[in-house]
Design a binder for these strands. Structure first.
Lengths: 203, 203
DNA sequence: TGACTTATACCACATATGTGTATTATACTA
DNA sequence: TAGTATAATACACATATGTGGTATAAGTCA
């Protein structure tokens, strides 16, 4: 968003128009029913001009996704993964908050059928970040670490997806606490919490 | 596949030709580069005929996915989810085996960008099956159960995806054991196993 | 086998896609 | 502000898509 300033005003204007038209159309109909002609018409640009910037509809989505991942990455830089690994509540609380605020506008992307790519991008980024934080303090072999991270990160994102689809019924604290327990103690941790009847997040 | 026998021979022949052509083309190029004309030409049918059976390329994928999910569902019927929940090794071993055999032909689907839908279909099916097995024996509230299942099932599938993409380097026992531990004891269970140095699956 | 039912082929059309080329309009910069 | 760079347009073309109507071929069944 910063380097935008140095770019040709025409380019800036056109891309903005395309993005805006796309968002508008997306709010009206399914992505598969949106044609390039639709976008060009609504953005009031020549159809050819569209191809100067995007090779197709999904490349707009790709661009948006990359912006989202960048946001994640930046905010995650403020967390000390290494320190919090054995009590990851703080990490998950942070992630949940990001999703709850910055992602508000793009939230529906998470629930779209097509956007596995966003999920996999986030998975890739989080895996990289976590692995560099782990290495070499925690004694665990590479392959196992991969499995653990795949499992935990994908699981976490799935929870967020459902959270979105159910209009974020639970509080950030609830979600964070549950994911945190699932990650470190698994299902047995949940059973324990349920038995006690006093969850971590009760006020 | 059974009811196929009662269907008009022409229909049978045409659908088979389409499916075959699609598989052939898929092995040659990316799904996004496959046109309906390609399929019609290779299957040696009129382009219009294609539309008699499928509304588009992705509906073929959809059909294949549904067949895969059915296979899963059937084999999973042989497992006693309720009994094995606290020591889920058997369940995961069974699932891993299915993937390793029946899914061999369609395995690459799991690693395709587009096939989130397969994943979500499997998630939906497994969630339903698990919930009916849980209810009402295990004392856990509905919402929490949803979260646990989303987390565990999506995590599990992510592990399988990576397993596929790395050409199934680990044994079925290794994968099953790791997922099993992750599910019931979480990351702490993995750390414990690593410390002891004796994993469940060492012979 | 012969009458029927139905799948498929053939032709046609409106629209979408991707791309090339030449021209015009706009923005940058010295 | 004048000159230059480049973004955007206009136009055109080959191909793909989805769909409708009619004719033909193949399968089904009594």
């Amino acid at each position: 968003m910063d380097e935008m300033k140095t770019i040709d005003r025409r380019t800036r204007k056109t891309k903005k128009a395309i993005r805006h038209a796309f968002a508008e159309l997306l709010s009206q109909k399914d992505i598969n029913d949106i044609t390039i002609r639709d976008i060009a018409d609504l953005a009031d640009i020549n159809r050819k001009t569209f191809y100067n910037y995007y090779s197709g509809i999904y490349q707009i989505v790709d661009e948006i996704e990359n912006e989202i991942v960048s946001t994640y990455e930046k905010v995650l830089g403020e967390v000390d993964i290494k320190r919090d690994l054995k009590n990851p509540y703080r990490i998950f609380e942070r992630l949940t908050s990001i999703i709850n605020t910055d992602l508000d506008f793009y939230g529906y992307l998470l629930s779209m059928r097509e956007n596995v790519s966003l999920v996999s991008k986030i998975v890739t980024m989080l895996k990289a970040k976590t692995k560099e934080a782990l290495h070499p303090q925690i004694e665990i072999d590479e392959t196992t670490a991969d499995i653990v991270l795949d499992y935990a990160i994908s699981g976490m994102i799935a929870v967020y997806q459902q959270w979105f689809n159910s209009d974020r019924r639970q509080s950030i604290e609830e979600i964070s606490s549950t994911i945190s327990i699932l990650f470190f103690q698994g299902f047995s941790g949940i059973l324990e919490r349920e038995e006690k009847g006093n969850s971590i997040y009760t006020k």
